[in-house]
Nucleic acid binder design. Structure first.
Lengths: 337, 337
DNA sequence: CAAGTAACGGAAACCGGTTTCAGTAATCCC
DNA sequence: GGGATTACTGAAACCGGTTTCCGTTACTTG
């Protein structure tokens, strides 16, 4: 493996001149050519590590995600990677694999690897002591840090989110627009951040349209599995739901299956909206109306932000919320008294 | 940010001694303690770049995938990341985004980043000139390289695959065991490597059990979308198929939908097997029998291999094929004359 | 107690780049 | 033709670690 000194020797110039040629600093044309041909002859590649050492940057961004095998973070990482590369940045990825207590360790490891910046997706422990301390440290050293899809509270960190409130609001309002009098919501985990926000969006939509909030129409599945939906569906049916907003496509699917068994026709007897717009949502019969989350865009925006923080274009701390998109398909229709 | 010299000064020892403490080289206990407390006091983190420079390694592995947002590579990368980390290695990921001609560039970029090794998943251009030359270069320099899910032909590279032949064979034999006389196969893209292997597996299973191969029972959807399945299903029905092995779950889903419309009952009138075992396969009604690919394991095995190549434990070039798992659910049942 | 040996630790070289600084050569202008 | 200005270039310092090499000290041992 040739080094810059080899090139210099072969071209009969100093290392400095080679370096200048490499970095586009003006050099006498004759020398430039000598250097370039030496580079070609030796198949020289500059050593990125040596470069990092002097320049004090690695052109690598650390990315922490809870998992990569689920339906979400693949798309997010794809967006990240694209946007980072458009700024000449590489991406080191680590997943916590949902292991409790691993977040601070992984953040520390990435940071020790001297990444130029760090994106943390969906931190679950950002409110806990060790993570708090660590994050505060990074922020005071004004190290480029972006948190995506996390609860920041009073922390002054740059953040990006997909708007859960707005997603739920849109879904609910769509059902209101279709004249539904009794709109139920089927939540996943009881007190996850997104559940709270979606519940608020749902309630707000009802209030804004002067509809009552009926506690019996608020059901909690506890998780996002279709089986859980089947368990709590009776509650909503008993409460007279004419439409249901399920907080994941899988929950919605559970509702569809359960309804099929009980002879409830969708959308004739019951309108249904899912959340996420996973690939199979458009495959179901009837095709599922759902709220699409801009996952790839989330990754892109977070990555773009960190890139600008790294190159110094963006100095203020900002927080961005991305809108969802309601994808109307076949499971939602007008309510006829 | 404190450096090793700062620590040395504070502890009243030389840089060398600090380095020794850091790397576990024996040092007088008294000095060890002085160094350790200096490290703590200054919150010292060794500079990974400087370390890489002298040591000549980065502890980073480059990983190239075609995409991350599809249903496969997320799980694969998760496996990769786990296995790499268990060897203290980090992972830089790049996706080609299926862009034609990008593979050699991306490999070169990763390699210039001085990664310690490279895993290429599903290379599509490995047989083309630029990629060939590049790969040959890497191999002759015996740079740690693992290709996963790619066609190696005569290239002597370490490789890992999921056994497409065996997966198709298993699926077909399962249907044979269920007494099906007319087993059809529904292929995706006409001449993709995996299609060829699966078709071979299918044919071999039939031959091994003394059943004829009927060309009319071999249908080509052209891609893996459910709509395509619906288009070619009539061909298989007309040819008298009593069972169909579809080469993706989405194709299988298309078959299910189409059959529903035509009043063909699954599994009573027609048995069906999918491929991939995507999450919604177990949600369908009836639940889809399918061939599960060990994606996470593929990532783990490839990563384990590269890790051993890097630390010198594994010197020979080896090729590993991973078996699939037939997941029998409800869409396949015994054929009754 | 002197000589030999083992255990430590510091100075300096090195990894492969970038950048400063000063010197040289070329150009300009009168 | 000579002095001032400008354009390049090379030597050397530097980034922050690791490692070699050698001198010092402490410990054995006869």
């Amino acid at each position: 493996m040739a080094t810059i000194s080899d090139v210099a020797k072969k071209a009969n110039v100093s290392k400095a001149t080679v370096s200048r040629v490499l970095n586009g600093v003006p050099v006498r044309e004759e020398n430039r050519q000598k250097v370039l041909s030496a580079i070609r002859a030796l198949d020289y590649q500059p050593n990125a590590q040596a470069r990092s050492l002097t320049l004090g940057r690695t052109d690598v961004v650390g990315v922490l995600v809870p998992d990569m095998d689920g339906p979400f973070y693949g798309a997010i990482l794809e967006g990240c990677q694209q946007a980072l590369w458009s700024h000449g940045l590489y991406m080191i990825v680590r997943s916590t694999h949902h292991v409790k207590g691993s977040e601070p360790n992984l953040v520390k490891l990435l940071w020790e690897k001297r990444v130029d910046g760090l994106i943390i997706f969906t931190p679950r422990e950002i409110k806990e002591k060790p993570m708090q301390a660590l994050v505060k440290d990074l922020v005071t050293n004004n190290f480029p840090l972006v948190v995506a899809d996390g609860e920041l509270d009073s922390l002054s960190i740059s953040g990006v989110w997909i708007d859960n409130f707005e997603g739920a609001y849109k879904a609910t309002r769509h059902l209101i627009d279709l004249n539904h009098p009794n709109i139920g919501i089927l939540l996943g985990p009881e007190d996850s951040p997104e559940s709270k926000l979606r519940l608020n969006g749902y309630k707000r939509a009802l209030k804004d349209h002067h509809l009552p909030v009926n506690p019996n129409l608020v059901a909690i599945a506890g998780d996002y599995r279709s089986e859980s939906a089947e368990k709590v569906l009776p509650q909503l049916v008993k409460a007279g739901a004419t439409a249901i907003f399920a907080c994941s496509d899988e929950l919605a699917y559970g509702v569809m299956e359960s309804c099929k068994k009980q002879g409830i026709k969708i959308p004739q007897d019951l309108s249904l909206i899912g959340y996420d717009d996973v690939p199979f949502a458009r495959l179901l019969t009837p095709k599922l109306t759902t709220v699409a989350q801009p996952l790839t865009q989330l990754g892109q925006v977070a990555a773009g932000k960190i890139a600008r923080m790294i190159n110094g274009t963006e100095r203020e701390i900002t927080q961005i919320t991305l809108p969802t998109k309601l994808v109307v398909r076949e499971t939602s229709s007008v309510y006829h008294g």
